[in-house]
Amino acid sequence: MSQTQWEAALVSPVDRTRDHIQGSAGAPVTLVQYGDYECPYCGEAYPIIKEIQARMGDRLRFVFRNFPISTSHPHAEHAAEAAEAADAQGRFWEMHDLLYERQRHLTDQDLHLYAEELGLDVERFDKEMEENLHAPRVYEDFMSGVRSGVNGTPTFYIDGVRHDDSYERDVLLDALERAAAASPR
């Protein structure tokens, strides 16, 4: 087993019952992102993904999974838990977007204010945050990323295979279009 390299592929397939998904299951290509809310590179990728989604429309299915690197980003873990707490109230993507749009302001107090701003049941949100109710879910995402060869954030997978090229808009869009064109569907 020495000096062998393996193809980095997603070990946990997209699961409609647990994953955060935008776009239809019938889309010809699926993009999975492992991301950290406090990571500036993920912040850079955020508007790029939005633009690619707008361009590709229903030909793209997008999945976001948590990969907080807490040693480098002290607020990333709680931010991920906040997005999951919003998900428990059916508002994952709104919180996800807000966190990236304000990624320099992610203290616990900020997260509480975002919950208010989104009109969540704040009492429930605060309780779940206090109890770290969603930490196991965040860690599950994190470990599925580690085992899939995530080596930093953001890491993308196109139809389950790690995209090792840049996530610059045109490069990523081109890779997605090629995958979509090659899809048998």
Binding site: S2, Q5, A8, V146, S148
Partner: peptide
């Protein structure tokens, strides 16, 4: 029991170790 040389600019991740 296992060794791996990564290109110098590439983070090899943790999966191989695990």
């Amino acid at each position: 029991r296992w060794s791996y040389l990564s290109p110098v600019g590439v983070n090899p991740g943790a999966d191989g170790i695990l």
